[in-house]
């Protein structure tokens, strides 16, 4: 199995997965606390639109997905805050619009649907240099963001009104969190796929929320579980010749199940 690491795509995939495994669950904490779960579904559909557009225009699907997702979250957040529209309903609206426009592009430009839908299950071993470095840099920035603004983030997560009266720029942090979520989802989709990205984002944060005794503990435990799932899942996939993304997701789900059942007892 060690020999496999001599192959650059495997080594690159392993490095990026470990780093994101520790970093991306931080976004999972944001998603859970800010109740942004509907946003995640919208971003998955946005990714298909981004992929279809990119393939139709012969540009990098990762970049296209990122741009479309950023536009969608900004539009949705602006509409929900300015027009007082329900974020869940807006997410559903943009989901439908995204997937409809995506299929129009697929049909009109004769984009192979299989290539677009490959985004749904990720492609860890096909990272190019831009995607590899970009994902690593973003992961480090995410960790720095969390460390630098942990006090302000804690206030925003606790209560938005209280955060404002404590002098925190709550609106700025809200938009920041939304943008970070969009980039994380786009990156995680490339690594592990749209359908399985929750294994890297949400499951670690969910598990941490069951046993963490503080906000600080919640962030650290989420990061720990994410790193563990990524490392063990990846090594198991190599050992048993299984797809990395599915192995990580199954391992994370098993740990989640065991912890839930243990806690009930």
């Amino acid at each position: 199995m060690v020999d496999l690491f001599t192959y650059p795509p495997v080594l690159k995939g392993f490095i990026v997965l470990i780093i994101t495994g520790f970093a991306f669950p931080i976004t999972g904490v944001y998603l859970l606390r800010m109740n942004l779960l509907p946003l995640r579904f919208m971003l998955m559909h946005g990714a298909i639109l981004g992929g279809a557009l990119s393939l139709a225009m012969s540009i990098n699907p990762f970049g296209g997905t990122l741009v479309i997702n950023l536009l969608l979250v900004l539009l949705m957040t602006w509409m929900s805050r300015s027009l007082k529209a329900d974020p869940g309903q807006l997410s559903a609206f943009f989901m439908v619009v995204s997937i409809s426009v995506a299929f129009i592009f697929i049909y009109r430009f004769q984009v192979p649907a299989k290539d677009t839908l490959s985004l749904m299950w990720g492609s860890l071993y096909t990272l190019n240099s831009f995607e590899f470095i970009g994902t690593l840099v973003f992961s480090l920035l995410l960790i720095i963001f969390q460390a630098q603004y942990r006090h302000q983030l804690r206030a925003v997560f606790f209560d938005s009104d209280v955060a404002r009266t404590a002098g925190v720029n709550e609106t700025g942090f809200y938009y920041g969190i939304i943008l970070i979520t969009a980039v994380t989802v786009a990156a995680a989709m490339k690594l592990i796929g749209a359908l399985l990205l929750d294994a890297l984002l949400l499951l670690p944060a969910l598990i941490a929320s069951y046993h963490a005794k503080s906000y600080k503990g919640m962030v650290l435990w989420s990061s720990f579980w994410g790193g563990l799932f990524a490392t063990v899942g990846f090594l198991l996939s190599l050992a048993f010749d299984l797809p990395a993304s599915s192995t990580i997701a199954v391992f994370a789900a098993l740990v989640f199940l065991i912890l839930i059942l243990t806690q009930k007892k």
Binding site: V162, A163, A166, S214, Y215
Partner: peptide
């Protein structure tokens, strides 16, 4: 500001962390 109900769910946060929110900025 002391409002009616200061937390809406069981998000893990200690009492000391809540007090420290006053120093967030």
């Amino acid at each position: 500001y002391l409002n009616q109900e200061t937390i809406k769910n069981n998000f893990p946060i200690t009492a000391a962390e809540v007090v420290a929110i006053g120093l967030s900025s």
